[in-house]
């Protein structure tokens, strides 16, 4: 695997206005992520992991410092440019799945491809493949209301990886799932990581998934307190 930087963060500070003052959510963050990495941002609630994930995804902006994602300086890009980066090169997985309830599995997964103006025949091929990856072929015409939490999260994964993004950001992807489903999800993600060259960043404090991570960045009070590679991570 080529050791190319997907994320390069230097001296990142993020402050939020609270009343007349500012609350510092992240301070002096330095982080590099190479292509194909499977990394977890781990820490208690309020440690800043979701904020860091949002800044990496261009959903929020840094107060200070430099954030370069996939070769794009997120400080110097417009909203529209960031939208294009996300559309083409990023995938998101959320704790509460966030599927569009009126659409089927197929249609939910198809959405990123529609945004990328892909032709319908090609879309069909990609969606079918993504749905097969997550093992939901028999549920392809179901709607979220008719599926279990695990199935919904697998649909969300299919939607996040259908356009084969360079970077996948997952915010507490197993928090709403039981142990069995959590392991299933992590196995799927781990398998995808080895099959496609997507880099994965998880924000989590779920002990169950720690074993799958190949690198863990510990956050506390907005600071990185530890950054370590794990030995013998679980795999699919």
């Amino acid at each position: 695997m080529e050791n190319k930087n997907v994320i390069n963060i230097k001296n990142l500070v993020k402050q939020f206005p609270v009343g007349g003052n500012y609350f510092t959510a992240l301070q002096n963050i330095d982080l590099k992520l190479s292509e194909g990495e499977f990394i977890g941002l781990v820490g208690p609630s309020g440690s800043g992991k979701t904020t860091l994930l949002n800044i990496i995804g261009g959903l929020d902006s840094a107060t200070e410092g430099s954030v370069i994602v996939l070769g794009n300086s997120m400080d110097n890009t417009s909203h529209n440019e960031r939208a294009i980066i996300r559309r083409k090169h990023m995938g998101f997985i959320f704790q509460s799945y966030n599927l569009l309830p009126v659409y089927t599995v197929y249609e939910n997964v198809e959405l990123p491809l529609i945004l990328n103006n892909m032709k319908s025949t090609e879309r069909e091929k990609k969606v079918t493949q993504a749905v097969e990856w997550v093992g939901l072929k028999d549920k392809i015409n179901s709607k979220p209301a008719d599926m279990s939490g695990g199935e919904c999260q697998r649909t969300a994964i299919a939607r996040a990886i259908v356009h084969e993004p360079a970077l996948l950001l997952a915010d507490e992807p197993t928090a709403n799932l039981d142990a069995k489903n959590s392991h299933n999800i992590m196995k799927i993600l781990s398998k995808l990581n080895s099959e496609i060259s997507t880099s994965f960043v998880f924000a989590t404090h779920d002990e169950k998934i720690m074993g799958y991570l190949r690198r863990i960045v510990h956050l506390e009070d907005g600071k990185i307190i530890n950054d370590e590679k794990t030995s013998n991570p679980k795999s699919a």
Partner: peptide
């Protein structure tokens, strides 16, 4: 969600 997926 739509913004996250990449709509402007």
């Amino acid at each position: 969600l739509r913004l996250a997926i990449g709509e402007s």
